[in-house]
Design a protein around this nucleic acid. Structure first.
Length: 201
DNA sequence: AAGATGAACAACCGCCATGTG
DNA sequence: TCACATGGCGGTTGTTCATCT
């Protein structure tokens, strides 16, 4: 795989060294990356970025893949169990987000980090005597009552089993990455992965 | 209805660890 | 042993969207 990437890299014209793109990923870029990884696998991200014809850094490709495009990634709808687990693990390990993420199948360190900063840290700052259990309860209440942009309908149907469930089948994933995307990304990764399955790819 | 404000999230940056020649 | 490339991680910033006034 790595060898293949290297081989392909050598075949790439060096004139492709155009300026590196930054900012939000487009649907086309996502498709290219997904297709490339589906065919060649992950690894050697800098080579991958070049070989796939993406004017992105390897880092950027890696981040996009790990945090967003991977078939087993779940986003949104942090369950109460997951929230409790995050709080517990953070109390134990501190800001070791990747380590914490490993205990939450389908969750990324970036997502957990964001979740902590926006939802939980806020509470820690507010209350001088912070109580994890209380924070969980109040957060659950606020998210299910308010119409937050990420917790609309699905948040009502909390899914306790997720915290223990290793998600390996893309079809089993809850819907995400669709309605709340920017116009460029108005599509679903699950759609793509189900297409891949359908095509036997 | 329009502007202000805050929340949520995607993505980038910089640093460090590790692998390789 | 050293230098360089790459990957991984945590921190931070920028953008978008929803809510409030």
């Amino acid at each position: 795989m790595v060898e293949e990437a290297n081989r392909m890299d050598k075949s790439i014209n060096s004139s492709q060294e155009t300026e590196v793109r930054k900012g939000p990923w487009t649907m086309e870029e996502d498709l290219i990356l997904i297709n490339y990884i589906a065919n060649h696998g992950e690894g050697v991200w800098n080579n991958l970025a070049r070989s796939a014809g993406l004017n992105r850094t390897g880092k950027s490709c890696r981040l996009r893949w790990l945090n967003y495009l991977r078939p087993d990634v779940r986003r949104g709808n942090i369950t109460p169990e997951e929230q409790l687990l995050i709080m517990d693990l953070h109390a134990r390990w501190g800001n070791r987000w990747s380590k914490i993420a490993k205990q939450l199948p389908g969750r990324t360190d970036n997502e957990i980090k964001n979740y902590w900063r926006t939802r939980i840290q806020k509470k820690v700052k507010q209350g001088e005597s912070f109580d994890y259990q209380q924070a969980m309860v109040t957060d659950e209440t606020s998210t299910s009552n308010s119409t937050s942009q990420t917790n609309s309908v699905e948040d009502v149907g909390l899914q306790p089993s997720y915290a223990q469930t290793q998600v390996t089948n893309p079809d089993a994933l809850p819907p995400h990455f669709s309605s709340t995307e920017s116009s460029d990304n108005f599509w679903s990764v699950e759609d793509f992965w189900s297409m891949q399955q359908f095509n036997g790819d």
